[in-house]
Computed example of a mutant assay.
Amino acid sequence: MTETPFDFDLIAQGGIPLQRFEPDQKIFVKDDEGACMYVVRSGKVAIVSAGAVLENVGPGETFGEIALIDGSPRSATAIAREPTEVAVLDEKAFLYLVQKNPSFALDLLRRLGRRLRFMTENQ
């Protein structure tokens, strides 16, 4: 079961914004409102909770999805570990990507499933 590489051309076609972060810059903080998710175009992002790195996210990978999907506050903090560029997907952009590339939704569900399984197995 392999993931489809993320299509950044589709991001450009949809007018979805990119945002840059410097090393150690916080992208969001635990308990922030979560109205968007992110796709890493370049760089690396650490997902941190209670001082521990839960995951390092690199190019083509996503983070912040749960808050976008369920509307809840952020459950962790995301910090750029090197110069990083991300695509910022709000609900409208998310729906655009799903409509233009339905496999995006399945890939995202697979990523979330693997993340949940990993966290459950490593408690």
Rank of each mutant, 00 (worst) to 15 (best):
M1D: 10
M1K: 09
M1V: 08
T2K: 12
T2P: 09
T2A: 13
T4W: 07
F6L: 08
D9L: 09
L10D: 02
I11K: 00
I11F: 01
A12S: 12
A12L: 11
G14K: 05
G14D: 07
L18C: 05
R20M: 13
R20C: 13
R20E: 15
E22N: 14
E22K: 14
P23W: 08
K26R: 14
I27G: 03
I27C: 10
F28H: 10
F28C: 14
K30P: 04
E33A: 13
E33N: 13
G34Y: 08
G34A: 11
C36Y: 05
Y38D: 06
V40L: 09
R41E: 13
S42G: 11
K44N: 15
I47Q: 03
I47G: 00
A50S: 12
A50G: 11
A50C: 10
A50I: 05
G51W: 07
G51N: 05
G51L: 07
A52S: 13
V53W: 02
N56F: 15
V57L: 03
G58N: 12
G58A: 14
P59K: 09
G60Q: 03
E61S: 09
F63A: 01
E65F: 03
I66T: 14
I66W: 13
I69D: 09
I69P: 01
D70F: 06
S72T: 15
S72N: 13
P73A: 10
S75V: 15
T77A: 04
T77L: 02
I79Q: 04
A80I: 01
R81E: 15
R81Q: 15
E82S: 12
P83T: 11
P83A: 11
V86R: 00
A87E: 00
V88G: 00
V88T: 04
L89T: 02
D90Q: 02
D90V: 02
L95F: 09
V98L: 05
V98T: 06
V98P: 01
V98M: 03
N101S: 13
N101T: 12
N101C: 05
P102T: 06
P102Y: 05
S103P: 12
S103K: 15
S103V: 14
F104C: 03
A105R: 08
L106S: 11
L108I: 03
L108G: 04
L116S: 07
F118G: 07
M119V: 15
M119L: 13
T120Y: 12
E121N: 15
